[in-house]
Design a protein around this nucleic acid. Structure first.
Length: 400
RNA sequence: GCACAGGUGGGUGAGUGGUUAAAGCCGACAGACUGUAAAUCUGUUCCUCCUAGCGAGGUACGGAGGUUCGAAUCCUCCCCUGUGCA
């Protein structure tokens, strides 16, 4: 049994829905904060729950290197290890094939990485990446792919796309044969016991036959519409419970990103979840959601926060700027998050300038709150059939 | 008072006769960041002018003189700081 996806409302192209994972339901379209090494840098899990994070992204490559898949498995899987009762999606390591280009060697069989931590050599294949993700036990796991670099010529994009296709088939085969090896069989998120003065622990039910992990595949094809179409159709033929559009936000112009997303979505099943990997700004995720994208993830809100760049309803704010030194106003006058409710721009700037860790914590909480709130409003507007009006209001805010 | 050591740009600190307006680091200011090798990275940081450039001029290494084609660098005196001895 795989994870069910129910579409609730449908607009022109946008839709809202529910993804029923073994660790709770996820309202879509959803933004998934990135918690690469089993943490959203700077923000504790209980706070992530408070601000409404429904699903987190983890990274197979990083967790494989440290603490190691076996450790996580022994500790009950990633949810239990990091004390996160809600849904998790793990990336397969395919993006590291792209981002660690200096440190890897690709062959049909798989990819040899040199660890960015200690230089040691490691081999990832569709089979081993899938095995690792089963060991981590995320609710949604991703087929091992090659995130094609940009720019790349057509022959290169085609060859890369076809290899990703073969790797998707291998990932699926391995998954079908081993999907019962997850470190949990089921759990009830509501069973989280949080007694006073007690270390929070989950109560894990071991009922048989409950929902298992779902393996999503990734469409590649570079910036070539025909190759995207071919990649989408052939991936769909292989049959997966959900599909991702990968290989974007790798340096191409934003107009191209949008064009590829829009064109690729047409070739993906309308009744299954569609996930665009690695996007975007608040305006972009709102826009893509209105195109019919159900899931997105991005390091931008968390990384930018750590670098002093904050997304607000009045545009981007670089909190390090001298102009905020004596600004008593809330960071974002229209934001209800705990940071905007409590602290002034002057204080946030001071924390940043002083290199205090609280700056990272507060900035990240705000940016994530802003992203999640944006998606909440997108869902609301889709339900009301007013997504185009919502989009134009978001765009006009950005211009200010 | 004597003897050493030392005084360099916002700070620290290299530099001991010639591409030195003066390294590096810090600070300050600005920019970047999109399936996280990212609490990271990039740029600017004496003044003036323009045709905006490895452009022109000015000022600058405690102060004043001097040696030299040329001085932050060598010499003399003075001022100041630190340490030790009286």
């Amino acid at each position: 049994m795989t994870i069910p996806f129910h579409i609730e409302t449908t607009g022109a192209s946008a839709r809202t829905g529910r993804l029923i994972t073994p660790h709770g339901e996820v309202e879509t379209p959803v933004f998934m904060p990135v918690g690469t090494v089993a943490t959203v840098k700077g923000v504790p899990q209980d706070l992530l729950e408070d601000i409404g994070v429904q699903v987190l992204l983890g990274n197979t490559y990083h967790l494989y290197l440290r603490p190691g898949i076996e450790s996580v498995r022994k500790l009950g899987g990633l949810h239990r290890f990091m004390s996160w009762p809600r849904a998790i999606l793990t990336d397969s390591g395919g993006f590291q094939v792209f981002s660690l280009s200096e440190l890897r060697k690709i062959s049909e069989e798989g990819v040899t990485f040199r660890s960015h931590l200690d230089g040691s050599s490691h081999f990832f294949s569709p089979e081993s990446a899938t095995e690792a993700q089963i060991g981590l036990g995320a609710d949604v796991i991703m087929a091992f792919d090659e995130c094609t670099e940009y720019p790349a010529d057509r022959a290169r994009v085609q060859a890369s796309m076809e290899m990703t296709l073969r790797w998707a088939a291998r990932s699926k085969k391995y998954f079908e044969e081993h999907k019962n090896d997850v470190p949990w069989t089921s759990c009830q998120p509501s069973a989280l016991s949080l007694q006073p003065n007690q270390i929070p622990r989950f109560v894990w039910n071991d009922k048989e036959g409950e929902a298992t992990q779902a393996l999503f595949a990734i469409v590649q094809g570079g910036m070539d519409l025909a190759l995207r179409k071919e990649s989408a159709e052939r991936t769909v033929e292989l049959g997966f419970p959900g599909y991702a559009i990968g290989g974007l936000s790798v340096g191409e112009p934003r107009s191209v990103t949008r064009e590829i997303i829009e064109a690729t979505l047409e070739h993906l099943p309308k009744d299954q979840p569609r996930y665009v990997m690695g996007v975007g700004t608040p305006e972009e995720i709102a826009e893509y959601a209105c195109l019919g994208v159900d899931m997105m993830d991005c390091v931008l809100p968390t990384r930018a926060a750590r670098h002093g760049l904050l997304f607000t309803s009045v545009g981007k704010i670089s909190i390090k700027q001298a102009r905020y030194a004596e600004d008593e106003a809330a960071l974002d006058p229209n934001c209800a998050c705990r940071v905007c409710q409590r602290y002034s721009r002057a204080y946030l700037r001071h924390l940043y300038a002083s290199n205090e860790v609280l700056a990272q914590v507060l900035n990240t909480i705000h940016n994530l709150s802003f992203y999640l709130d944006t998606m909440r409003r997108v869902r609301h507007s889709i339900r009301l059939g007013e997504e185009s009006r919502f989009l134009s209001s978001v765009r006009s805010q950005v211009k200010r």
